[in-house]
Every structure is written in C-alpha cells, then in structure tokens.
Design a protein around this nucleic acid. Structure first.
Lengths: 247, 247
DNA sequence: CGTACGTTTGATCTTTCTCAATAATGGTGG
DNA sequence: CCACCATTATTGAGAAAGATCAAACGTACG
C-alpha cells in the first residue's frame, strides 16, 4: 500500500470538485468535517444490509466493494470503491441499507458522522449539489454494470471491468503508468461479472494469450489501451468525467 | 388506458411525499411547476444517450423504459418507469445523458423545464431532499437488477421482475386487484432480463404450468402473491417503501 | 516450512442461445 | 365490419457458452 500524500477529506474534496466545481469555502467546509481515522482489515464490513447508516466512511487507502446476496447465497458485487470515494452516500439518506459494503483490501478510512454530512449539505448547497451529482454518477455506473452483465459475453465483460477500473484510477490521478494492481481474486472478479471463477480464469488466460493484457500476480498492464477498450466495448461516457487520461 | 383522476404533478408530489414527508407549501410548489402536457406515442424517445437534458418529463399515463445499447447493438433495459415517475432526475444534473428513455406504451407526460426544477430545489430544500432520496431509491433498483441479471436463473429472474412491477404499482395505489397489465412484449422482457425472447416464452409457460402466474394477453395475475415472491426471491426492502400492500 | 487460500487444468453437464418455421393477435385502411 | 399486414407468440431441433465437479499446483505468510 502506498503512503498517501493527501488526507481522505482532501481526496473527497478533490473528487467532488471534479464533478461540480466548488469554491474555496465549500472545499474548506469539507476539510473541516469532523472525522475519526480508522485502519481496517481486508474483509471487514463498513455497512451491512439492513443496517441504519450512522456514519459515512471516506476511503483514504485501500479498496471497498458493494455487494448483495441472493436467497440461495450467491453474491453479486455491485461496485468497487477507490480512494476518495465516500462509501455511504448511497445509504445515508435512506432508513436502512439495502446492500453490504466491505473492505476488499486492508485500508484506512475517515469516518464522518451522518449529522455532520447533513449539516454540511444544509449550510453549503453547492456541496449538496456535488454530492447529488456524485451519487448520480454512481447510479450511471450501476446501469453500465447491468448492461455489462446482461448483454456482453464473458471476454468483453471482463475486459470492460478491467478498463473501468484502470480508467477510474487514472482519471483521478491515483495511478500513473499503464500498470495497476487489481486487488481482486478471480473469485471476486467472478462475483462482479456474474461468471464463475473457473471461467474467469480461462478468460484471463485467453486475454493474455491474445496480447491484450499482461499479468503478474494481481498486477495488470494493457499493452494497448486502445485495443483493450475495443475488446471491452468500453466507452467512458458513463463515468461522466472530464477526460484526463489520453493514455 | 384508464382515465387519470390526478394530474401528473399531483402524482409526482404524492410519490415524493411517500419517500420524504413534505409540508403543504412544498407540495404546492411542486403543483405550481410550469409544464406542458404532451401526448406521446409508444416507442417515442424522451431522451437519447448523448443528449443534454433540458426538460424533465413526469409520467401521467403510460409506461417508459430506460435502456442502453452495446457496441454490437444489443439492448439492455435498465428500468421501467410508471405513472408519477419523473423520468429525468437521473440526468438533469449531469451534462449529457448516458442512456435512452423511451415510451413503452403511448401515454401522457408533463414536461417541466430544467431550470424550473433547479429553482424548485433551491427554494425548497425539503423537495431537494425528496428528489435526492427518490434518485437513491432508483439507484437501489439498478443494483437489484444487477443482482437479478447476474446471479439468478431464468425462472427466478423473470418471477422477480414480475413481482417488482406488481409491487411498485400496488404500493403506489396504481393497481387495485391482483391483476395487472404488464405492458411489455416478450422481446422487451428478454432485454430487461438478459435472456432471449424464445427463452422468456418458455419460462412464462413453465410458470403458468406450475400455477404461479395466470396470463391473458398481457394481463398477469398471481394466484398466490406469497408463492410468486418465493419463486422470484423477491424481498421488497430494496424499494425502500413503507409496506402498504399486504396482499 | 506447513497450511490456507488462490489459481490452473481437464472432463462432463446444463442452461440458455440460435435458427427456422408456424400460429396467433392486433391494428389499419377500405 | 372485414381482410390484410405487421408484429408478437409459440414450437422444435441442434449448438454453444458457461457451469459444475474434482483434482493438482502455487504461493504468501504466520
């Protein structure tokens, strides 16, 4: 895990500003949010289905996932959250959570009390707007995942997931070269794509054989960003970012 | 099509109030929204991917769908919108739409200019809160669809979709008996579930054979609401409604 | 340095898709 | 009101993608 140069709230302020330009006072209000830094182990839960959310975690280092279980116990991973993400905007304003949020890796988060967020939004309407926009972008990502799972074959589906992750890291300057660590096991990749771990394994090998990805443990590199995007039917429009990554 | 007893904005006010209690002034502000009533044919587009949303349609009668196309032209239906839904909250605050919104049936909508919504939100923070909550509930539905498509077999998947639709209609008092019209062709059902029309046909027949649904044209009835929920692994928690429908 | 977890491989099975043809339905113009 | 046409629903046969099961292999880390 890299040593972070910024605090969790600085990352958050930067991310919100990316979606909706914020003035210095609004930015400062975010930085002034009361919070408690917590170090979390991999697999620890930030929120469980049915819980009443009482605080909002902002990720400084590490990754988290949202997921949901079906009646027969299978798991669908719904999103991957990266540093700077405020993990509970999706739940904070609802009475009870409809899904689980769990650390994928170990990591450090800042926990902000629910009421502090409520006050922030009341006193700083532009921040409220930025939060609304951020949650709408998350909703857009959920939609794209439904498209990915529902309509694309396994190779396209996995390539698409790899592209999204790489793009999100790079467009928020969390990643600098073409290499990045994908902190997921093949089992988790399977649960994110609606495939089985065995099949994910075969598809990854096929992508590698075809020169579309290079792998070393959990490190992934794209020899050609253009080609992997084509294979993954990846168009970043749904991420609603200004395009910073002309790799 | 039934003759509506309420206006589109009355439906909207009722729906928002359902998610976040609104006072009489806030309700009135919604009813006072400037708008233009439009009669739309089935298949007509309310918004296309890439468009800049400039108005928000509120459905009075009829149904609309959100959908998205992949590079190879296949379509994933992402949501079904029913009377009282404001179809463009998902897009209004973003620069360009990432998906299409299209009438499923013919219907009547009220079109509200974007700026009127912006002003409403500024002047009535509680309405803004209600809109945020409504969009969060929509996001929750997107997540459940991802679970449905990614993890459940075809029979469960279709039963789940039927349950959701029935539940949403009844919980908003848009439906009174156990019978309702599902305004979708089997082709559209297929695009909503990530299956093929042929397979949807076979699954519907199987559900009927097993006494779980009765069909007459596009009318569907559940002989036992409990049993179809069990088959569909349907738990309405993700809809975040107060449970009104103890059928 | 052993144990638990993750990855890889092979063989076989199942669900769902594909293709193609036929039947039913609904809407439209005359 | 009826005949016609386009759309939708249904059926059958065969193919394919991906799942399942089981075993072996790696590797990280306590």
């Amino acid at each position: 895990m890299d040593i972070p140069q910024e605090t969790a709230l600085q990352l958050l302020a930067r991310k919100l500003d990316l979606h909706h330009r914020l003035g210095p006072q609004d930015q400062q209000a975010i930085l002034d949010l009361p919070h408690k830094i917590r170090k979390l182990e991999a697999q620890s839960y930030l929120l469980r289905e049915g819980d009443r959310p009482e605080r909002c975690a902002v990720i400084l280092t590490g990754y988290a996932i949202r997921h949901k279980l079906t009646g027969d116990g299978s798991r669908q991973i719904l999103a991957i959250n990266i540093p700077g993400d405020a993990v509970d905007f999706q739940n904070l304003f609802l009475a009870e959570s409809d899904h689980n949020v769990q650390m994928l890796t170990r990591g450090i988060v800042a926990e902000v009390p629910r009421l502090a967020i409520e006050d922030l939004v009341l006193g700083h309407p532009e921040v409220g707007r930025a939060i609304l926009i951020t949650t709408l972008v998350e909703a857009s990502i959920f939609r794209e995942w439904a498209v990915n799972i529902g309509q694309r074959d396994s190779r396209t589906r996995i390539a698409h997931l790899l592209c999204e992750f790489a793009y999100r890291l790079s467009s928020e300057h969390l990643n600098h070269n073409g290499v990045y660590e994908l902190p997921m096991t093949q089992e988790q990749l399977a649960d994110a794509t609606g495939l089985t771990a065995v099949h994910v394994n075969r598809v990854l090998q096929a992508l590698q054989r075809d020169g579309l990805i290079e792998r070393d443990r959990r490190m992934v590199r794209f020899p050609s960003w253009q080609r992997i995007q084509d294979v993954g039917d990846f168009n970043p429009r749904y991420l609603h970012t200004v395009d910073l990554s002309a790799n």
